[in-house]
């Protein structure tokens, strides 16, 4: 048995090394690393924690149901509110949303974004050359953006 003493010392050194490895690894590898793959699981939460800027059309419909009803009856039924009215999550989260009213978009610019004539646009899509069509008059003086009629 005396002859085995050197083996025991060697085993002890290996064991100590192994423990040291585990402890160093513990300290260096971030929490959750490898939980779902070769990445830090917490990164998913970090990305999800970002604040939303666009509230979504369902949120708008809670208060503005009259406008939404009008919109859904017309040609623009598929267009989301914030496609024209910009990001409104802040407005939607206010205790009294009337204090932070969104600015009405300028229809001269707004409507032209989609409806300005361009031959790359799909054939069936209604397009006009705004300069000839209205002569600088804002679109909403003839068309109701929520329920456009030709």
């Amino acid at each position: 048995m005396k002859d085995a003493a050197h083996l025991i010392r060697l085993a002890a050194v290996f064991a100590a090394g192994f423990i040291a490895f585990l402890l160093i690894r513990q300290a260096l590898v971030p929490a959750g690393f490898g939980k779902y793959g070769h990445f830090r699981a917490g990164a998913l939460d970090d990305i999800r924690a970002r604040k939303v800027s666009f509230a979504g059309r369902e949120q708008c419909a809670i208060c503005h149901d009259d406008r939404v009803k009008e919109l859904h009856a017309g040609k623009h039924a598929g267009v989301g509110c914030e496609a024209c009215h910009e990001a409104q999550a802040k407005h939607a989260q206010l205790d009294d949303p009337s204090t932070g009213k969104p600015v009405l978009p300028d229809t001269k610019v707004l409507c032209a974004r989609c409806h300005e004539k361009n031959n790359a646009k799909p054939r069936g899509f209604p397009q006009v050359a705004t300069a000839e069509h209205s002569g600088g008059e804002p679109c909403k003086s003839c068309h109701n953006p929520h329920s456009p009629k030709l």
């Binding site: 970002r50 939303v52 666009f54 598929g78 914030e82 496609a83």
Partner: peptide
């Protein structure tokens, strides 16, 4: 990801007319 994990759609899909 911060939107779709809350049940919303992406900002680009939300605003695509």
């Amino acid at each position: 990801y911060h939107r779709i994990s809350k049940g919303l759609t992406t900002a680009c899909c939300e605003t695509c007319p």
